[in-house]
């Protein structure tokens, strides 16, 4: 009985979480260019309860909007670790996936989820606002079913992530 209620609490919490996703205001790469249209009057992300918030403490989603170079990665990790659980990461565009057009650049991190756990990727360069919104909808489904557990994975595999981060950042 007790487990049941705990389960129910989790369901309710997830239901609330998916309806109010605050993303951190951090334009890590050029994918951020398609965020203003998504936020503003034409696509109006706020319909889904998504809103940009300023500091790492307030936000739920970290958007890695495009490529990450080494200098940014350090800040992204700081920001990610400052965020409060539950927190979700969305990798934006092909650069976050595999380096994209910068596959041969010395400055760019090739694969995002070696360093921080990504819950979702959006393919494309750049992803269109429709794609972004569809990704958010998908994330909501994942949260609802409890599958968006990147923050748990990060805690579980902290050694792995730290090792990878250390290799790059030194």
């Amino acid at each position: 009985m007790e487990r049941m209620t705990e389960e129910q609490v989790k369901t309710i919490a997830n239901m609330l979480r998916k309806r109010s996703l605050w993303m951190i205001h951090y334009c890590t790469g050029c994918g951020a260019m398609e965020l203003p249209p998504t936020m503003t009057s034409r696509y109006d992300m706020e319909r889904f309860g998504l809103a940009p918030y300023v500091t790492s403490r307030q936000a739920d989603i970290l958007l890695i909007t495009g490529y990450l170079n080494v200098k940014t990665l350090r800040r992204v990790i700081t920001v990610y670790e400052q965020m409060l659980d539950p927190k979700y990461v969305i990798g934006f565009g092909s650069c976050a996936l595999n380096g994209g057009v910068y596959w041969d650049s010395y400055a760019v991190i090739k694969q995002l989820d070696r360093y921080i756990p990504a819950d979702l990727y959006i393919a494309g360069c750049m992803p269109r606002p429709e794609a972004i919104i569809s990704a958010f909808r998908h994330l909501m489904e994942l949260i609802d079913s409890g599958k968006a557990d990147g923050y748990k994975r990060y805690k579980r595999n902290l050694a792995y992530y730290k090792e990878n981060q250390r290799k790059v950042l030194g």
Partner: peptide
């Protein structure tokens, strides 16, 4: 939202926001 030519969030969005914040698993 309507002044800004947007559709705007659902009417009970602030309730979701407050409750979501309250059920955060981690607080500092």
């Amino acid at each position: 939202a309507r002044i800004q030519r947007r559709y705007g969030p659902t009417i009970i969005q602030p309730i979701y926001d407050v409750l979501k914040l309250l059920v955060k698993e981690d607080n500092i």
